[in-house]
Amino acid sequence: MWKRKKKKTDLGKHPLETKDLSINEIRKAIHAFSDQKPAHVPLSVLIHEDLTLDYDLLAPYLHAQPSRPFYMSRETYELFEESDYELAKEIDIVQRAVDEYMKQQQEAPVIDDDPYKRINYYKLKRLDLLHERPEREYYLTKEEFMITYKKPK
């Protein structure tokens, strides 16, 4: 006859303590989130438009708010510290250009006969996929045609 009001609890609404977390601690939290998330949810839900991370989603794994920002590439899911923010933006631009080039040409935009598989910026610019030539070299990895800025051995 009379309905009882359910008590509303503020679980998870407490402000998190700010800590100086390392990039490895952030990386571990991202891996834990990835292992726990439903299969249909992409990892990109963690990444805001400005490439910062959604620390609310990582809170159950970090138990703190980082005192400095970290950034994650939306294309390669690589994690970067604040000093490498421009690299995070650039790697996304080049990866999107490489993906589009491969969709259009059905081949990788690498320098011919290059043992390191360096990305050929001329090929990307010729199709108007890249507007500025990056200062650093990028290389095509063996994993799903992803790029990296680290020179292969």
Rank of each mutant, 00 (worst) to 15 (best):
P134E: 03
E144L: 12
D128R: 14
P134I: 01
Y121L: 01
K125Q: 13
L127F: 01
K142L: 15
K123G: 03
R136K: 13
K117Q: 15
P134V: 03
E144P: 04
L130M: 07
N120K: 04
E135T: 13
Y122N: 12
L127E: 05
Y121H: 04
L129Y: 00
Y121G: 01
Y138W: 05
K123A: 07
L140M: 11
E135L: 10
Y122T: 14
E135Q: 13
E135G: 10
R133A: 10
I119V: 08
N120C: 14
R133D: 10
N120A: 10
Y116N: 14
H131C: 12
Y138H: 10
Y122R: 15
Y121D: 04
K125N: 11
H131Y: 13
K123Y: 08
H131S: 11
E144G: 07
R118C: 06
L127H: 02
L124G: 00
H131E: 11
E132S: 13
Y122V: 15
K117I: 04
Y138F: 11
K142N: 15
Y138Q: 05
R126Q: 12
L130F: 06
L129V: 08
L129F: 01
K142G: 15
P134Q: 06
L130V: 03
Y139V: 03
E144C: 07
L127M: 09
T141F: 07
Y138V: 02
L140R: 02
E137T: 12
D128Y: 14
Y138R: 01
R118P: 02
